[in-house]
Design a binder for these strands. Structure first.
Length: 210
DNA sequence: TGCCAGGCCCTCTTTAGGGCCTT
């Protein structure tokens, strides 16, 4: 399997939704996939010194004591950046994780130029009849396994990787796209829903000709 | 507790409003 077939699924736990308003990451996890298989994992709590609101602790189970005992955020992010390298990434609601990825790497003095694809946008394209496009709801809807504690970074990154696998599987088996790589996923998520059938047909035809 | 932001997406739209999704 070629290195070019790698995609890294990432998930952050944070103190809130807005890094521009002072929210910081509390935990990051990255699940490395290659040809649809999980080949490596990265996970760490991180300490930014920013207190975690009580309702966030209730949601995630991550306490101020836990992050106080964790390595500094800059060290964790430097390790995460090395782990990812130039691998393209995917996240569930990628705009959120991309903002924290960029903000935390910038704060750590690292570059952050990885491309992101979004499993929310892809799921809305491919599964418009899903009752909900929340990560856990989609996992349950597909009957995919839940591993670990929901709303912890590694469990959510694992679920995002599973959802990505399901998306690529359906693109191949149901839509006839032979190699739904990261660049294709980004084209697909940007395609207006109305144009989706034509987009997929064009992809099939161009692949057959090639 | 759940607003905070940002972006997508739908509609009773486009000179707007509101739901969804992430924590």
């Amino acid at each position: 399997m070629s290195h070019a077939d790698r995609i890294a699924a990432i998930d952050f736990e944070t103190t809130g939704v807005s890094p521009t308003r002072g929210d910081r990451a509390t935990e990051v996890a990255i699940v490395m996939t290659e040809g649809g298989r999980v080949v490596d994992r990265f996970q760490s709590l991180m300490n930014t010194g920013v207190p975690i609101p009580p309702f966030i602790t209730q949601l995630t189970g991550i306490t101020n004591a836990m992050v106080a005992a964790a390595p500094p955020a800059a060290q964790v992010m430097a390790d995460a950046a090395r782990f990812v390298g130039d691998t393209p990434m995917v996240a569930h609601n990628a705009g959120f994780d991309r903002r924290f990825w960029q903000a935390e790497l910038t704060a750590a003095g690292c570059a952050a130029d990885q491309a992101f694809a979004c499993t929310v946008l892809l799921s809305r394209r491919l599964y418009p009849d899903a009752p909900s496009h929340k990560l856990g709801s989609l996992i349950d809807w597909f009957g995919l396994p839940r591993t670990g504690q929901a709303h912890r970074a590694l469990a959510d990154a694992e679920m995002a990787a599973e959802l990505l696998g399901r998306i690529r599987h359906d693109l191949m088996m149901r839509h006839g796209v032979p190699r739904p790589d990261h660049a294709f996923l980004r084209e697909l998520q940007a395609c207006p829903a109305r144009q989706l059938p034509r987009f997929l047909q064009t992809r099939r035809e161009s692949t057959v000709v090639a």
